[in-house]
Computed example of a mutant assay.
Amino acid sequence: IVDFYCASAKLVIELDGQHHFTEQGKHYDAERSQILNSHGLRVIRFTNHDVDTKFSQVCDVIHHAISQTEAIPK
């Protein structure tokens, strides 16, 4: 289960809390991202802190990722 998924853009958005910054959390996240990538999905990660304090920039990154996807011929 991912935090957010946009099927048309093949985009996964993950919000990472404190447990993601432990060695075990980093390893799990890297392996999970690799699996998602192998299915043709792009994974973008944001810290909870960034979402809380830099929401506009987070939205800009997501918008840019979706714009890039739309530019790719199908």
Score class of each variant (00 low, 15 high):
His63Phe: 10
Glu23Ser: 12
Ile66Gly: 01
Ala30Met: 10
Glu14Trp: 01
Cys6Ile: 03
Val12Pro: 00
Glu14Gln: 15
Gly40Phe: 06
Thr53Gln: 12
Gly40Arg: 05
Asn48Cys: 14
Asp29Met: 03
His19Ile: 15
Asn48Ser: 10
Phe55Met: 11
Ser38Leu: 05
Thr53Lys: 10
Gln57Cys: 06
Ala65Arg: 00
His64Ile: 07
Leu41Asn: 06
Gln18Pro: 13
Leu36Tyr: 05
Pro73Ser: 10
Ser67Pro: 01
Leu41Gln: 06
Ala7Glu: 15
Asp50Lys: 13
Asp16Ile: 02
Cys59Phe: 14
Thr53Ile: 11
Lys26Ile: 06
Val58Ser: 15
Val12Lys: 03
Ile44Asn: 00
Gln24Phe: 05
Tyr5Ser: 03
Cys6Pro: 00
Asn48Met: 07
Ala71Phe: 07
Ser8Cys: 05
Gln24Met: 09
Ala7Pro: 12
Thr69Asn: 03
Leu11Tyr: 02
Phe21Tyr: 12
Ala9Arg: 00
Cys6His: 07
His49Leu: 14
Gln18Arg: 13
Leu41Tyr: 10
Asp29Gly: 04
Asp16Asn: 09
Gln18Lys: 13
Val61Ser: 10
Gly17Gln: 07
Leu11Lys: 01
His27Arg: 14
Glu31Ser: 06
Phe4Lys: 01
His19Asn: 12
Gln34Asp: 14
Ala7Thr: 06
Ala71Ile: 11
Gly25Tyr: 09
His27Met: 14
His39Trp: 15
Ala9Asp: 06
Ile35His: 05
Leu15His: 07
Pro73Gly: 08
Pro73Ala: 11
Val2Lys: 02
Pro73Thr: 09
Ser56His: 11
Ile66Gln: 08
His27Glu: 15
